[in-house]
Design a protein around this nucleic acid. Sequence first.
DNA 1: AATGAATGAGGCTTCATTCAT
DNA 2: AATGAATGAAGCCTCATTCAT
Lengths: 205, 205, 205, 205
Amino acid sequence: MPRAVRERQMLDAAVRTFGQRGYRAASMDEIAELAGVSKPLVYLYLNSKEDLFTACIRRESAALVEAVRDAVTPDAPADRQLWDGLRAFFAHTAEHPDAWAVLHSQARTVGEPFAAEVNVMREEIVTFVTALIAAAARAAHHDPSLPDREVAGLAHALVGAAESLAGWANTETTVSAHQAAATLMNFAWAGLGDLMEGRPWSPPR
Amino acid sequence: MPRAVRERQMLDAAVRTFGQRGYRAASMDEIAELAGVSKPLVYLYLNSKEDLFTACIRRESAALVEAVRDAVTPDAPADRQLWDGLRAFFAHTAEHPDAWAVLHSQARTVGEPFAAEVNVMREEIVTFVTALIAAAARAAHHDPSLPDREVAGLAHALVGAAESLAGWANTETTVSAHQAAATLMNFAWAGLGDLMEGRPWSPPR
Amino acid sequence: MPRAVRERQMLDAAVRTFGQRGYRAASMDEIAELAGVSKPLVYLYLNSKEDLFTACIRRESAALVEAVRDAVTPDAPADRQLWDGLRAFFAHTAEHPDAWAVLHSQARTVGEPFAAEVNVMREEIVTFVTALIAAAARAAHHDPSLPDREVAGLAHALVGAAESLAGWANTETTVSAHQAAATLMNFAWAGLGDLMEGRPWSPPR
Amino acid sequence: MPRAVRERQMLDAAVRTFGQRGYRAASMDEIAELAGVSKPLVYLYLNSKEDLFTACIRRESAALVEAVRDAVTPDAPADRQLWDGLRAFFAHTAEHPDAWAVLHSQARTVGEPFAAEVNVMREEIVTFVTALIAAAARAAHHDPSLPDREVAGLAHALVGAAESLAGWANTETTVSAHQAAATLMNFAWAGLGDLMEGRPWSPPR
DNA sequence: AATGAATGAGGCTTCATTCAT
DNA sequence: AATGAATGAAGCCTCATTCAT
């Protein structure tokens, strides 16, 4: 069996185990067994538990970013981009709950090297959202645009809300990616103030 | 030294260790040493690692809820209640970063009993926020108010955004509780749409 | 409360705990709690776990020997003495199962000092039975009596059978001390050979 | 070194250690060292202290039963079968004193699961002896044979006497298996009554 | 290309025992 | 006469990792 295939099997097993048990509680024994190979082979291909975990983070980070990026049309209006990206995000995390657990819950609780690894991706997304908000603000009004720090804070809030809703949507099995995205757009774009007045946000087109 | 005092020392040490290392990586040896007692005494007073962790969760949950509750004036307008509560929340999490790590990051990644323990508190807060939103909606417009599921989703998004910003404010040491709360009110109450148009939310009074 | 009374309570608790759990598995904590006193008091009165166990063995040895001795009439015929002694033995062990467990099962499995302690009593009984058999043999036939070694072996076999039956009678709750003693007299006095021929032993008088 | 060999070494060491120290006092460290392996290997092959002890009991039970069974000729007269079986029993227990200690002394004092384990074998032997006695009784006299309960009691007494004599023969190093068996046949078959009259049992053939 | 065999190190937990009052 | 507070030592068990084949 070619090396690339074996390696993918191992990563699959590792993501599943790390996602369900956590980094410390996951044992190399369990991962090797789930992958259907002997433990020494795991070490031969992936070096150590730390390296294996890092490999999981990298692969799943890339997959998630790619899923979101593929869904967004670069030149569309800001709320449209957000709407498309969020739907892709919720759909991907719902389809790969263990991968999402690795990225969101596990990697950030283990310690610096891994938290940093996952933050690379997170900041990438935050930067994307920051740019989106800034562009929309510039397009909408002429006056002094929002201060940078403020925009960064808003982007963080938006991303945090999305992450939180991803967990909620995974728990409440009746909530679809579409619904989660709609809720978040309402919340983030229209704002509670407008919603109170009966002015919800509505999907473009 | 009286039992109650010793017990508090142990819990302090445990919260700090669990918060920084995580449940699995924290060793009872380290906790005992940090508390300045021998390991058997920890077991005599707190039974087991699981019980110790549970005791940490309970104590810190109660402390956080109390801090928020004390800051909110029950009959004030909704946005005022939110504004006060958020400032208290960000202030408390900033002052007790290890406690916040235990509640937010660690407890939810270890397994069911602990996640459930912390979710009790979380749901308490979500319920409070849900009621706040629902009341504001009823007060503001005459039409049939927002559907329950929708309101719950909004509350989850708001709480999630707050949790996420707490982490951000802890990382970026220059962000104060006041600023974090202002950012979130802008985001959540005014909404990005209004912000784009130059209509930020401003603190009541 | 006078010291003698307290001490008896402690020994009662110790016999019960040692009998049920075994020497190693019994904890001083459990014994102290069962006795209704604090642990330091147990140490003040009885010095150490070893000493406590030794005290249990001595007390229960003496009680068992006394029960048997009191039941036997010194000048009665040999089989009558045996019959009376066995009934007393089975009755006592049935009434004090924990004490019997300490003497028979626990003390002999812990290690030399304790096994020796209980063997003092055992040899006392074996010696008594040996003398009984020897006397009976001398009284019955004129010729060269049985060799000493042989008589000692028989006494050991008899005592061993009795000990084993005591366990059996304690397990099978329907077997009374009287029945156990009758079974053993049949077995030991008449012998299987005679029993096969329909010549059982029958109680004197 | 192949697994089967290592496993036997471990069981040998375990039987010796458990037999001499008892279940609780025996440490896995000591067993591993005596077996010449590291502790984790013991756990890898035998799972836990409990499982290791159970494995010891099973192996030694089987060995003892096999030794006795191999020595008995199925269709021989009852006293001949008993005589052969007892010699094999005393010879085996004398050759494997630690194994005998595990089965007789240790396993029965630790707690239910183990006592039950060893009782399986014991009952097997008692059943065999019971059948032997019953057959002999039927063959010998025409009258209604002995009641079942009575026969079971006799078998228990016989087995108990044998067990006890095994300990005695192991202690008194000058007593051979042959002598022990002869003593017991005298005692059990002829009975003290006959012996008093100078009518000992004598070996068949 | 792959594995059966093996271990050093470390973690959770318990227990007999003492000290200061 | 009695105890609340405290610990050194030791035991069971698991795990990441390597070697020889």
